[in-house]
Amino acid sequence: MSERVALYFVASPLQYLAARRIAERFEAGARQVLVWYKPGVTPIVRMEDWDAARYMPWPRWEPLPGICGRHRRLRDNIDLVVGLVGRCETLHIHSAVFDTEAINYFLRALPKACGARQMKARILPDGIISIHRYPLSITKRLAQYARKLRRLIAPELDYWCFSGDRIGSDAPFCDRIYVIPGLPHNYPADKVVVLPPLVTVSTARTACEPGVRRALVIGQPLVGAGLMAAEDRDAVAAEIRAWLAAQGIERIFYKAHPKDPGQELRLSDYMLVNLDEALEVHLANTPYDAVLGVRSSALLFARQSSPAETRVIAFGWDRIRFKSDAQRRDMRAAFTTCGVEVQ
């Protein structure tokens, strides 16, 4: 039996890097268990860094075949994670959000199945999303109680209903919220723990061609995510290309977003970057004269890990469809506080 197990549910490279820092700095001595549930994380996982690590299918998108496939996947996932965690005295469950059936059921199922006498839930940072609070609406609260009905046929699926912020920051099971240094937030001060830098900036960056100026354009879903109309997206792409031309930068690289198969901001002369590491690690190790995008969290990390002479610019903010004026204001404040130029 392990004395303490630290379990991390991650869905992005950023969350993976945060989990690594937590494991090293705050959960040293615990059994370290990683579970990732988005296939895009797979290439960056270093199995040797964990005591146990496995991919977990998301029940909604990857149900088991046949009748009640989603329900059976939920139960199968619990068995999977119980096997990874093993028996323990104390269990710390880390996730970026707890208002989702794919994660929430573990809060009650795992301690009982693993014999844990104590369980605490801790929140992983999730980039720009973490600068806002997202209060649960009445509809979402009712949905929580509907999910609790599963325990009538599967006692281990006992949903933990809660109120306040949907990620679980106000819930009684949450005792710690990890945040990224330099990024503003609205979480309770008594729960917040500031992480050390997620990546170490290399003092010997990858050598590039001397005299050749380079830029990286960071893609993200814009039209596909409802953030812009197609004509606005095209105008922003043209604006970025015009800025690069004015700066005399001709070697242009493009990092696509996993949820942007159409590569909305990529032009024909942009060279696609394919990585087997987190983008944040790539930015820390590879010099660029400019890093450009719209409102990707990667711009914040590019600013933190790049020398002062590197231009980091967010374009097209006058064309973005923000959910509210408050969101626009808070997001702009986060970018400018971190030193990103907002056009």
Rank of each mutant, 00 (worst) to 15 (best):
Q32P: 01
C174N: 13
A154D: 12
T100L: 12
L17E: 02
A225S: 14
D158W: 01
D325T: 14
C338M: 15
E280P: 12
R213E: 07
V342T: 08
R25N: 10
H132P: 00
E209I: 13
D51F: 02
W58N: 13
Y8G: 04
G168E: 03
E89W: 00
W50M: 07
F26V: 02
E231K: 15
V97I: 14
W58G: 01
G226I: 04
G211C: 05
I252K: 11
L272T: 15
I240S: 05
F335W: 01
A11D: 11
L272D: 08
R54K: 12
K148E: 05
V33E: 03
M56F: 00
F322W: 12
E341W: 08
E62M: 09
Y187F: 15
A96D: 07
D190K: 06
L64W: 05
E231H: 14
A314R: 03
P135T: 11
K38L: 15
H71R: 08
D234F: 11
R72P: 00
S95E: 00
Q32F: 01
T42L: 05
A189H: 12
A225P: 10
A18K: 03
A235F: 11
Y16Q: 04
A96R: 02
S202T: 11
L64M: 13
D289E: 14
A334N: 03
V194G: 02
V199C: 07
G69R: 11
A237W: 00
L110E: 09
L84R: 06
Y254N: 06
P188A: 09
S296P: 07
V342A: 10
L14P: 10
F106Q: 14
G293R: 09
V82R: 14
A334M: 04
A290T: 05
P63C: 08
V201D: 03
S137G: 14
A326Q: 11
S130T: 12
V82W: 05
Y37S: 15
L183G: 01
P307V: 08
P13S: 09
L80Q: 15
R108Y: 01
P13T: 10
A96C: 03
V194A: 08
M1Y: 10
S12R: 04
Q304P: 00
A278V: 08
L195Q: 05
L283N: 01
P125L: 09
G83H: 10
L149G: 03
R205I: 08
R147S: 10
L244F: 06
L80H: 09
S130V: 00
L272C: 05
A19M: 10
P210V: 09
R214I: 13
A53K: 02
P261S: 08
P196K: 06
V81L: 01
K120C: 07
M47I: 04
F162P: 11
V294D: 10
A53P: 04
I78F: 00
G224D: 12
Y37M: 15
L84V: 05
C68N: 12
E239V: 01
L198A: 06
A215W: 06
R233E: 07
R87D: 07
